[in-house]
Design a protein around this nucleic acid. Structure first.
Length: 455
RNA sequence: GGCAGGGUGGCUCAGUGGCUACGGCGGAGGACUGCAAAUCCUUUAUUCGCGAGUUCGAUUCUCGCCCCUGCCUCCA
């Protein structure tokens, strides 16, 4: 089957088509770089990493753009707290972000534009909006977008402007003509970082950067726009309002939104304080376990974070690594994923289904190898599938044994035990087994000798 | 209140108008093993929130109800 994806804008799965043959322009909303990323961020990045990898697998030339919001209130506040300028802070956080993403096995996007280096594009877009009467300068000198002037407002998120107003929690602000209007350009307050503009020194509102940067790098109309569910409204709605009003055409064609990571059935978020950073989790679990955990649920469903779930992901991964261990140094010549796996990913990136196929392939290999059959084709398939999901990518021995330099003590005990076994001194052999078990080391005897792993 | 998405075995997570409801974790039994581990095999939901309807037939479609979560402010 061809690639089908759930387009938020249409509210249904659609056949994926591209604007230009064999090319995909994809924009994903990145992070505001004022702090370390948590598991919720990990989910978006991993989900769209799979999207990226799969589109490339399908033969598309993918232009994947993911931004960094590197100026906003929280960044300014955090930098002030730490007595540093915002760029020092954001540079550090971007470096940390890259470390996290690398650990999680996420490929770098084609481009990672920063808001602060795209002021001219944003200013130009705001000017166009004013010129076309979609935006106005308020009494305080801020530039605001007039939501009522854009009649497509609310179509992405299925919201009706009047319903929004009646249930609005937004403070009524005198400078706004309508409570829903949002800021495009903020006047600088003293001491804040600012940029020159036709409206004086100031800085951009949050939403404008994504409209401006996506259009600058992908064109006014492009194929895929993604991000977390929580960005659907108002962020993505505002992006559409800005881009369409300024450019006069269509904006992103397919909108993909991933579900949240929950803790105790509650959304993980900074404001609730119920979050774990990626680095906190990876102190205990290998980053690949986190990736496995995330891919175990379809990207649009909510995902409950818990130790039990992480342990289950770890146990499943261990099994796949047992298979990889048996593959050894075998030379995998041609690697193709099988039909079921393709169907799963083509069906709106159904990674749980794809993983089920990986497990079945693993079982086939183990069984075939137990029966001394030639499993090369399945092994190639296993390698291709795990490669596409970017799991089981570590060295199997290191996965089980760790990468400590000196394991000679363990090795010599194993040698001693092998000798003891040979002379049928099983009590000594068992004593060694127990001694090592006390150190968390499990011995595995096989026809080809004894191997070990950490339990 | 408006809108969106859910409720599937001990846990988790797919899926389909109709043969034995995918996979993972966990449990039980077995094969293998000197003992283990790993692996493999078998097994673990007369049942898919509740009620009604459509249908030859619904977990899957429709309606109503109950419950959960999210968005409607910053948020991936």
């Amino acid at each position: 089957m061809s690639l089908h994806l759930y387009n938020t804008r249409a509210g249904e799965k659609q056949v994926f088509t591209t604007l230009q043959a064999n090319q995909v322009g994809m924009y994903v909303c990145g992070v505001t770089v004022y702090d370390h990323c948590h598991v919720g961020h990990a989910r978006v990045m991993i989900v769209f990493d799979v999207v990226y990898r799969w589109l490339k697998q399908l033969g598309y030339d993918v232009n994947y753009v993911r931004n960094f919001t590197d100026v906003d209130d929280k960044i300014i506040a955090r930098a002030a707290e730490r007595n540093m300028d915002i760029q020092t802070l954001t540079d550090k956080m971007i470096a940390a972000f890259h470390e996290d993403m690398d650990a999680l096995g996420c490929l770098r996007p084609t481009l990672e534009p920063r808001a602060t280096t795209h002021m001219p594009a944003m200013i130009a877009m705001i000017e166009a909006l004013i010129e076309r009467n979609f935006a106005y300068v308020s009494d305080t000198g801020d530039v605001l977008y007039s939501v009522r002037s854009f009649n497509g407002y609310g179509t992405l998120s299925g919201k009706n402007i009047d319903d929004l107003e009646s249930g609005s929690r937004v403070d009524v602000d005198d400078k706004k003509r309508d409570p829903l209007d949002f800021v495009l350009w903020k006047q600088a307050k003293t001491g804040e970082p600012s940029w020159a503009s036709p409206w004086g020194e100031g800085r951009p509102g949050w939403h404008i950067e994504c409209s401006a940067m996506s259009c600058e790098h992908l064109g006014k109309t492009f194929d895929i726009h993604g991000g977390g569910m929580d960005l659907k409204f108002p962020h993505h709605e505002n992006e559409i309002a800005q881009a369409c009003a300024a450019n006069g055409g269509d904006f992103a064609r397919f909108w993909l939104h991933n579900g949240f990571v929950n803790i105790n059935a509650e959304k993980m978020s900074k404001s609730l304080g119920n979050f774990f950073t990626i680095r906190e989790v990876t102190e205990t679990y290998h980053p690949e376990v986190l990736r496995m955990f995330i891919l175990g649920t379809h990207y649009r469903s909510p995902l409950d974070f818990s130790d039990a779930a992480l342990n289950a992901a770890k146990a499943g991964l261990d099994r796949l690594y047992e298979t990889k261990r048996r593959l050894g140094d075998m030379n995998i010549v041609q690697a193709n994923v099988n039909q079921a796996f393709q169907t799963a990913l083509n069906d709106d990136f159904n990674t749980p289904e794809a993983l089920a196929e990986v497990f079945e392939c693993s079982r086939r290999i183990n069984k075939g190898l137990n029966e001394h059959q030639d499993m090369v084709a399945d092994m190639a398939c296993f390698t291709a599938m795990t490669g596409l999901l970017a799991i089981v990518q570590q060295d199997a021995e290191i996965w089980f044994q760790g990468d400590e330099e000196d394991t000679s003590a363990i090795e010599s005990l194993i040698e001693e035990r092998t000798a003891a076994k040979k002379s049928r001194n099983f009590s000594r052999a068992d004593a060694i087994r127990h001694e090592l078990a006390a150190q968390g080391i499990i011995l595995e005897d096989s026809a080809t000798g004894t191997t070990w792993k950490r339990g």
